[in-house]
Design a protein around this nucleic acid. Structure first.
Lengths: 225, 225, 225, 225
DNA sequence: CATGAATGAGGCTTCATTCAT
DNA sequence: TATGAATGAAGCCTCATTCAT
């Protein structure tokens, strides 16, 4: 979940275009509080009362600004994605090859985690808790789109000959999972940069197309789907 | 969490209440039901009433056989670890080098997921939900031990020269995360074997030391010392 | 409640005259366990499971020997009254005047508490908890009879001129309450004999018919009923 | 427990949540309902649902206004102590000697019981039920303070020569118990005043020193020192 | 805009009791 | 006689939500 490749920065834009400024500010503030609480106690324990208490407002405010607890959670997701996009995009834009992109993606993702550990932890907790909620939620689709996007880049690398002939979906998913692992590391308060460097080296080694020795160490490159 | 390297097979066995055979059978049956429900709806939504309904018994039966919801969950953890140990051990015992061990570990882990997708999904859900529950749970320590164990093997591989000079903790954590990804894939009903093969290739590439002698990528070179 | 003037020693005699000896022994043992548990944790928390555990038997045994939890409690009451009668009667029989009787009654009651603090505490807890149970319980009536009995003796003392002209019911009730206070003192582990001596002096002073000074310190000796 | 010598009138007032007027009124109303229910069925059977039903509100209202059932009970205790202090203080303030104080204390205590029989019965039930609940409760300490206070007065009476040389703790405890007996009498619907007069006479007789000068039983002899 | 008040569903647990063996 | 197994009622609590002000 922590992978953020694109962000539309506040969905619902246009749903009620005439958002008063104060209303918007209030909403953002509440979303920040929700993020903190979720990061600290998990999604299930992040009750509206707890979030309201953190914000120093009454319970009703939440249901006033957000029709639903669900909508609040959606805004949490949107906010973190927005932040993620802001953080990642500059680094990614300057890359020129798939390999560079991959390394930059890993590196700036971890940097993002280090810069906003609570935000990302909250997002992670939200996705981890979604098995408990309604099966289809806003963020999930975004999530899928991300996997697709990373997949496209890996595929492009293979086409260019930069990457070896791995299954793109497996690799994309594994990268995502590896970054989740980095998140746990960072959230635990341990140094981010070395972890990022290790991951970069790991996936560089895992993807690069050094002439594979004959003898086929492992079978099957069939589409695992 | 899906990594299972060791299992003590039924914790608390004989703790002052001798296990009647029938009692043991009932408990196992209830644990299986709990596993199914947790796998389907997640830990938080796996209420005692839902589990009891699944088992076709009254709610009280659960608190009769398990002092606590917590104890039931503990038994779920124990059961899956037990199964995992049974499944993995044979494959792992016959390995002779760290690399073989690594590949076998990945391969038979995914096999395990394919054989017991619901069980492993339940275990995964349990650990995912633990951030919300009491911080220290029985299975958690087991978990740590696993990471240590895998780390030791990776280190041994580096010592023998089979593996390159990566950070052992990062690699171990990443492997674990990658297997979690495999679990999601398998639970979604997609073929396990090709996914396993891809992961083996991925981590083989990610771990192997420089260019091994051609023709023999890096076959078991049992330290002749 | 701790006042015990008469005991019929095991009511229900004749209800099932052919009580096997073993059955009777079992029942007595269970009653003793119930007494201990009630004395320790109070009536409300003295659940059948706790009592059974204390006795080292299964829960079913209780409902086997006693149709009801209520019947078990009744037996507890009966047992303590029985003990009380055994303890008090010798002391009381040798008295020859109402004043002697009163002092002996107070003294041997407190001795009884000191000899069987847990039993008496259990009885006390049972009566304290009865407001929660069915309003009319076996022991209650016995209780009333006791008050009557003490009242008769006080009245006899007044007739003989040994006692002053107090209201008999009020005095009887107050003596009973004072003994309850002694029970709390004894159960708390503090020395019984001095407390008894003080109570004897107190009620000796309160009842004796020294020529009351004119001037009427207090009005109304009307029947307070 | 029915002895009320001092009351701080509403504990916890202003504890971080300022008492809205309406909120305060609601709370008081609910406390009154709780008092009625407890007086009628005892503490153990005074479930939240019963209290809510009595108040004509939903169960949730209770946990909305009182974090806990325990807090509600605490408020019951506080309320009755508050009432007791209001009732007793005027009578006690005008006394000038320990003996007067003792008689006024007994008299106005019973008056209090007669004025608020249900309230006092509830308090009594609460304390009777506390052996089953958490051992240390708010009101308990207040209780101890009362015994101490009465003890001090008795001691002062001995020092002045008004009272004979009894053990102060035993006498204080016995007075308290005697008042409990009066409560039972009053709650049963029988006339309070004659009972009070009897108790006054009883403890006057029980405490007074030797034979006081005839004609003036023992009128206030303010220590002229 | 904001709040306090109220609601009712849902969850976990304890417990007395019944039943089949 | 004794036991383990099972049941269902009742209690307390948390929580998301609605409503009137």
């Amino acid at each position: 979940m922590p992978m953020v490749l694109e962000g539309d920065g506040g969905r619902d834009r246009g749903e009620s275009e005439r958002e008063t400024f104060i209303r918007g500010a209030r909403r953002r503030q509440l979303v920040e509080c929700a993020i903190e609480v979720i990061a600290e106690v998990g999604l299930a324990r992040a009750s509206t009362v707890r979030i309201a208490r953190r914000a120093g407002v009454s319970r009703g405010v939440l249901t006033y600004h957000f029709r639903d607890r669900g909508e609040l959670i959606d805004q949490v997701i949107a906010r973190v994605y927005e932040l993620g996009a802001e953080t990642l995009e500059p680094s990614l834009r300057v890359t020129t090859t798939p390999r560079e992109f991959l390394l930059a993606f890993i590196g700036s993702s971890v940097e993002f985690y280090a810069a906003y550990p609570r935000h990302v932890a909250a997002l992670h907790a939200v996705f981890a808790g979604f098995e408990d909620d309604a099966p289809t939620r806003g963020g999930d689709r975004r999530h899928i789109r991300e996997l697709d996007r990373l997949g496209e880049l890996l595929f492009e690398g293979q086409t260019r000959g930069e990457f070896r002939d791995f299954n793109v979906d497996v690799m994309a998913r594994t990268i995502r999972q590896a970054l989740d692992g980095a998140l746990a590391h960072v959230v635990a308060g341990r140094p981010a940069q070395p972890y990022a460097a290790e991951l970069q080296a790991l996936f560089d080694a895992a993807t690069r197309s050094a002439a594979p020795p004959s003898g086929e160490p492992h079978e099957a490159h069939d589409d695992p789907d």
